[in-house]
């Protein structure tokens, strides 16, 4: 298999177009199943009542926001090492979704925190690192937005993402450490009560749905980016004509 063949913009544009519906439908289907499990199948938690059900969105969103950052870092490393332009486009296509999940995790965290802790916001280690992760996402997107030259933007963004990727574990560790120093053990998330299997299943289904959604959205965005970059080539102009007619 020739990877370079699939990395050619025109080929990848067509492939991405063919794959997108599958991922999109998969995401829709699994979200439906996942939500059904979380609202109707999973039992009411005897400690937290119905409010706990928000974790079916909160936990996958938090996972995704971190995974996506790692995937972006992976693509950036590939792009810088092998000078493959498509890799940078992947990173660009993923960033908004990562930021969205990050925001979602913070928002649902606040909604959960109100009944649980009696406050919308608590400087808990996870919430705080999530907030800083959101700052990192915002910084990266702001850098991309400020650089007009696509080549420079790709590379500068990639360097920043990689610096962030090295820094994220350190930030997480330092925040956690800071948290234990300042808060003592008044709030402890890690000691969650053991979870019923069906809750875990619901969460996993939602996580896979989030994966598929991310892939589908990233493919759509990468197609747009490819067309934008290649707009002077013949195939891109034909593709745009086809899009207009459709």
């Amino acid at each position: 298999m020739n990877l370079y063949h699939y990395a050619a913009p025109a080929t990848f544009y067509r492939l991405a177009g063919r794959w997108t519906p599958w991922f999109a439908w998969g995401a829709g289907l699994l979200t439906g199943i996942g939500l059904y499990i979380s609202f109707f199948v999973a039992p009411t938690d005897f400690q937290q009542g119905e409010a706990y059900r928000i974790i079916f969105i909160h936990v996958p969103a938090a996972w995704m926001s971190m995974f996506i950052y790692l995937v972006m870092a992976f693509w950036c490393a590939i792009g810088l090492a092998f000078n493959t332009r498509l890799s940078f486009l992947m990173a660009r296509a993923l960033a908004p979704t990562g930021a969205l999940f990050c925001f979602l995790a913070l928002w649902t965290g606040a909604l959960w925190g109100k009944p649980m802790w009696g406050a919308w916001w608590v400087w808990d280690a996870r919430l705080t690192s999530q907030l800083i992760l959101l700052f990192l996402y915002v910084g990266i997107m702001a850098l991309w937005a400020a650089i007009d030259d696509p080549k420079r933007g790709d590379r500068a963004g990639a360097l920043l993402i990689l610096v962030g990727a090295v820094n994220v574990p350190i930030i997480y560790f330092s925040v956690k450490w800071w948290n234990t120093l300042h808060q003592g053990s008044s709030i402890n998330l890690t000691k969650a009560p053991s979870m019923a299997t069906i809750m875990l299943v619901g969460m996993l289904v939602m996580a896979i749905a989030a994966w598929l959604y991310t892939i589908a959205v990233a493919l759509v965005r990468v197609r747009g980016l490819i067309l934008e970059r290649e707009r002077h080539t013949d195939w891109a102009q034909e593709a745009m004509k086809a899009l207009k007619e459709a």
């Binding site: 800083i132 700052f135 990192l136 915002v138 910084g139 990266i140 702001a142 850098l143 400020a146 650089i147 500068a156 360097l159 920043l160 610096v163 962030g164 820094n167 350190i170 930030i171 560790f173 330092s174 925040v175």
Partner: peptide, 22 residues
Amino acid sequence: LTLGLRGGGTLLTLLILPLYVP
């Protein structure tokens, strides 16, 4: 990274402050 960009100073703050956290 922000060399010669419009609003480089503000952008620098956005990029670097989170990295200073540790």
